[in-house]
Design a protein around this nucleic acid. Structure first.
Length: 501
RNA sequence: GGGGCGGUGGCCAAGUGGCUAAGGCACUGGAUUGCAAAUCCAGCACGCGCGGGUUCGAAUCCCGCUCGCCCCUCCA
């Protein structure tokens, strides 16, 4: 079966073939670590995870790397006042305040003025979030690449670009990439040099531009000894441009000039990915940097753009800890919610959607438990020719059609299963992609953080029911429900399970 | 103004030229239940953003419009 992916480079769905048949090389633009990652970030990261897992489902060996941008870049230098604040510096301010209010745990950041400590703090938080949400690469420290660990290879590539005539040192001492030296600039985004000029409007700042040969030329290295993070270089003590880290780390760690897949959010298409292509191809001389460029659409929250001013801006922690919807959300539920709709549509993050996802996770978890009991420790071998896996795989191969894939699984999970050992193997294979069932142990344990003894309460409810003491039975049920449990009574007894969202 | 993506029932969506278009959730009624939950049965859309065109035939292809989203400035 051929795998088809939408390639932003051609704006069409293409058959996927790796450059080398035995190994897929894939690079994902990861987080900046000036703050906690939000659910929109994770939609993009999980999208990358799901590509990787899909390729592995079909038997590919995937080398997936993701970068951590821990260099402090400027927030905005186009303001009228010429202000512009370093993101790492603004993070330092925020952490100082959060330390005072106790939001930052004691000892987590000793010195908020040390940008490396801030970066470490948020990097650690990101990896925790990522692991909870089942991002495979987050369990592989060797594939998580920090920009600050790779300044040397950035300088090497900048040197290479200058030697090859793709970059120059401007009158201001800044090293710029010359977009006119690269014929295919604009091919990914459609923002060719002509289009950029015609659409420029009044946006270009004259003084900023006077040092560049072309207004679209972008920075590779800026000497600035006053910058909070700085390194020595042939062009003065300063810091690298925003785009260069990805070009360098992809080439270095994946070990090839041409990689198979590069992923990111849709906003990265321009300028970030356009510039990466210019840099990489300028340095390597190859006719491609990545064969496939894949981008995830933004998510909306309850039909609106997610923004801090609207109060609908949620970090992963906000959602999991119940600040977004008023109830704690299991990580598997958030994972499913963020991967279940097609990556090329805007997804709408809603409380209702989360509850739908929780039902699906619950259903799959119970299905697994049922199969495990019925299979009695037996396991079976299955191949992708199994009818369910065949349909599931076909949906995945069709540009990651997850809605369809899940629509294959759910009716199957409600049907009569003749061979539980085989079904269990099928479910394992499906779950190697979805990664939502089984859940971690923490959900199924009886002891609640509130000290509720759920098993004892269920037993007490059964006793009350046996004695037809409905008032007492209902009171216990109310107590359990108030604590966030779903309570089911059947002839076999009462079972309470923690609500997942 | 320029570059791109999308608009199918209340919500999420399958379907990308051809039998009366659709699955899940939600909702409503019934069975069951001490009451719930779960489960089972039944009900729920005269229509695929709008208008043209191509075709024997279009949600599906083409043109125009409209609405939403992203980018052109840091941003997943």
């Amino acid at each position: 079966m051929s795998i088809r992916f939408y390639n932003s480079l051609s704006n069409s769905v293409e058959d996927f073939q790796p450059v080398e048949s035995d190994r897929v090389r894939m690079y994902s633009c990861g987080p900046t670590v000036y703050d906690f990652a939000h659910i929109g970030n994770f939609r993009s990261f999980l999208f990358a995870d799901v590509i990787r897992r899909t390729l592995e489902f079909f038997g590919h060996d995937v080398h997936h790397v993701m970068n951590i941008t821990d260099v402090g870049h400027m927030t905005d230098d186009s303001n009228a006042d010429g202000g512009g604040e370093d993101k790492m510096e603004s993070a330092a301010q925020r952490i100082k305040e959060d330390k005072k209010s106790g939001k930052v745990p004691e000892g987590a950041v000793d010195n908020p003025d040390d940008p490396y400590q801030i970066a470490d703090y948020y990097t650690k938080a990101f990896l925790e979030d990522a692991q909870m949400l089942g991002l495979k690469v987050a369990f592989e420290p060797e594939n998580i690449l920090k920009a600050t660990d790779n300044i040397d290879i950035m300088q090497d590539m900048i040197t290479e670009l200058i030697e090859k005539g793709h970059a120059y040192v401007g009158p201001d001492g800044v090293v710029y990439f010359s977009v006119e030296s690269f014929d295919d600039y604009g091919k990914l985004s459609g923002n060719t040099l002509e289009n950029l000029l015609s659409g420029a409007g009044g946006r270009i700042n004259e003084t900023d531009q006077s040092n560049k040969k072309h207004p679209a030329d972008f920075m590779l290295w800026k000497a600035d000894p006053s910058h909070i993070m700085k390194w020595d270089s042939p062009w003065g003590t300063g810091y690298p441009g925003w785009h260069i880290e990805c070009s360098c780390m992809a080439r270095d760690r994946l070990g090839k000039d041409v990689i198979d897949i590069h992923t990111g959010g849709e906003d990265l298409i321009f300028p970030h990915h356009e510039c990466e292509i210019a840099q990489s191809r300028g340095a390597t001389g190859e006719d491609a940097f990545a064969r496939f460029w894949m981008h995830a659409r933004f998510l909306m929250v309850e039909g609106e753009k997610m923004s801090k001013s609207k109060g609908n801006f949620w970090t992963v922690r906000d959602v999991l800890e119940g600040r977004a919807t008023g109830i704690n959300v299991h990580p598997a539920v958030l994972r499913l919610e963020l991967i279940k709709s097609h990556y090329r549509s805007n997804m709408n993050f809603t409380k209702k959607g989360l509850q739908d996802s929780a039902n699906v996770v619950r259903k799959l978890t119970e299905f697994r438990a049922k199969l495990e009991a019925a299979a009695d420790g037996q396991t079976a071998e299955v191949t992708l020719d199994h009818p369910i896996l065949k349909q599931f795989g076909e949906a995945l191969a069709d540009d990651l059609n997850f809605s369809k894939a899940i629509a294959v699984v759910l009716p199957w999970a409600s049907s009569e299963i003749e061979n539980p050992a085989e079904a269990l193997a099928v479910l394992d294979k499906i779950n190697s992609v979805l990664a939502v069932a089984p859940l971690g142990d923490e959900v199924e344990t009886a002891a609640d953080e509130g000290g509720l003894d759920v098993d004892a309460l269920c037993k007490a409810m059964d006793e009350a029911r046996a004695a037809k003491d409905w008032g007492k039975s209902d009171a216990i049920r109310d107590e359990l429900q108030a604590a966030g449990y779903d309570v089911k009574s059947s002839p076999e007894g009462t079972v309470a399970t923690k609500r997942l969202a």
